[in-house]
Every structure is written in C-alpha cells, then in structure tokens.
Amino acid sequence: MDRESRTVAVPVEGGALAVEVVTAASAPVLAVHGVTSNRRLWNWLRAEAPDLSLVLPDLRGRAGSFAVAGPSSLRQHAEDLVRVLDALGHDRVDVCGMSMGGFVAVELATRRPDRVRGLVLVDGGLPMTVPPGLTRETVAAAFAPQLERVSRRWADVGEYLAYFTRANPLLDPADPLLLDCLDHDLTDGRVMLSRAAVLSDAADVFFGDSRWQEITVPTELVCAEWGVGADTPPAYSDDALAAFRAALPTLRPPRRLAGADHAATIMTHSGAAVVGVALRDLPA
C-alpha cells in the first residue's frame, strides 16, 4: 500500500515538536512513544499495519524535539499534543500510547475528551505498582541504567545497538527497524534525550494523580507477559487487570502477549501486529 510521509515542525510552548505524518487509508491515529524513546518506536506498527495513517511526534526533550525548552510532565505532553492536532487540522482521533506514552494518552483523553475517539494502551496508561523502595526522591537512582546512554559518546549506531540489546534481551540486534529507531536517537554520537524530562515524566507516571477512572472512550489494553526479559514480573498482574475491568466500563478484555516483555510489545513484528489489530478493533 502506497503511503506518503512528511515531517513537520509544530510550535509548542518552548519550541517546536518534530512530528512525522504518515498518510495511508485509515483515519489518523496519534501514536505516543515512551519515556526514553522516540517516534521511530512505531516502525514495527508501520510495517505490520500499512493501512494506518499515523501522527508520530517526538515528545519534548527527545530526538527531533530535544531542544524544546521548559518543564516536562504528562499534562504538558497532553497540551503539546492538542497543539499537534490543531496544527494538522484533526478534530478527534484514536490515540495509541506505549508505556509512559499510554499515560500521556490517558491524560489527553481525560482532560480533552472532545479530541479523543478511542484509546489503545500498550503496557502502560493504567496505574502500575510502584517498585519497592521507589519514591520521588529515588527516581534518579532508579532510572540511572536507562539514562547511562545520555552520558556516553557512541562511536556509531552499531555500538549503541549492542548496548541497547544487552538491556533488552528479547529484541533482535539484526532487525533493521531497531537500528533505524536507535539511529534516530543519535546526533554526533550523543543520545538526544533530556535527563530532566525523563525524570520529571517518570515521577509523574508513578506519583502523579491519574484520572484513568474518568476515561469515557473505548479502550484497548495490550500488555506483556513479562517485565524486562523472560520470567520477570509484568507491569500488570492478572489481578490488576481484573480490577481495572471492574472499575472501568470502557475497558475491553486486555490482550496479554505471551512470550513478550515490555519492549517487545511494540518493538517486534509479532507485538506490533497485535497492536494493529487492537487499533482496527476500536469502534469507527
């Protein structure tokens, strides 16, 4: 299927977001990446669902939007995304968010329900159990492994790829889509990722006031069997999923991805295919 792709700069408070717009057969879907990621996180969804029209922003403090100044938070991201929809002339859209992007999607859907038609949440968006010992004061220490990449200069994207796949053992180091995603992080050997934005957003995910029980639109949840690597505790237990369904009438039966961890829910062809089905299953 033929698709057109263009990148636009959308003015927001503190600068301009880099937004890739992919035009295909469907109505537009706004796709929101995770806390340390970028818009190429959706490479696999583009491959598995070529019929989908996608709006793909780099969130402030990341990749093409690294230079956007000012504080970062779930609410600020939601406000930025309203600016994106306004700039592109989109009234209401389906929104797909992965990990922290799911929390941004929920923030958008509850603060501006007039702009969101349906939600697909990928291993995020609904409250996660706070890891033992994690507090607002210890977020920096907890995220030190993820932020190690910021303090280093990488010889090339291959070196960065080797580092990244050691931390994400279920991803395929020979996958060209992964190489492209990681290459989008880099400028002159540096990862374009704001430490301040990551820590502020992470604290908001775990300790902010979520309004998830106010979601009024059809919602799909795709979640992993494991956390990071095989046989690790998932972000969402079966008991938690049952509690969410009891409390949120708009939440459809969750889709548990067997053999996938957090990253593999979207950074693999098999995970992205399920996310594509979930998007197509939202009411038109």
Rank of each mutant, 00 (worst) to 15 (best):
M1H: 15
S5P: 12
T7P: 03
V8M: 01
V8D: 01
V8S: 02
V12D: 11
V12I: 00
G14T: 01
G14M: 06
L17D: 05
L17C: 08
L17I: 03
E20I: 04
S26F: 12
P28V: 07
A31W: 09
A31C: 15
H33W: 13
G34S: 09
T36M: 03
T36N: 03
L41Q: 14
N43Q: 13
N43F: 10
W44H: 14
R46V: 08
A49Y: 12
D51K: 06
D51G: 11
L52T: 10
L59I: 07
R62Q: 12
A67T: 07
A67M: 01
A69F: 05
G70M: 05
S73Y: 00
L74T: 01
L74K: 05
R75A: 11
R75K: 10
A78D: 08
D80G: 02
V82P: 05
V82D: 06
V82S: 04
A87N: 11
G89C: 07
D91G: 12
V93G: 08
V93H: 11
C96R: 11
G101L: 11
G102R: 08
V104M: 08
E107H: 13
R115F: 13
M128V: 10
T129H: 12
P132Q: 07
R136Y: 05
E137V: 09
A140W: 06
A141Q: 15
A141P: 05
L147W: 07
L147A: 10
S151Q: 15
D156T: 01
V157K: 10
G158K: 06
Y160P: 09
L161P: 05
A162S: 10
F164R: 00
R166Q: 03
R166N: 00
N168Q: 00
L178A: 04
L178C: 03
D180L: 15
L182W: 06
H184I: 12
H184W: 15
D185S: 13
D185T: 03
D188P: 04
R190P: 08
V191N: 14
A197F: 10
S200W: 04
D201R: 10
A202E: 02
D204L: 00
D204E: 04
D204N: 08
V205M: 12
G208D: 06
D209A: 14
D209M: 02
W212C: 02
E214I: 00
E214M: 07
V217M: 01
P218M: 08
L221G: 00
G227T: 08
G229H: 00
A230S: 10
T232V: 01
T232D: 02
A235I: 14
S237V: 04
D238H: 10
A242Y: 06
A242T: 13
F244V: 02
A246P: 06
A247S: 04
T250R: 15
P254F: 02
P254Q: 05
L257V: 01
A258Q: 07
G259W: 04
A260D: 05
A260V: 02
A263S: 09
A264M: 05
I266P: 07
T268F: 02
A272Y: 09
A272G: 06
A272N: 10
V275P: 08
A278Q: 09
L279T: 13
R280A: 14
P283E: 11
P283K: 11
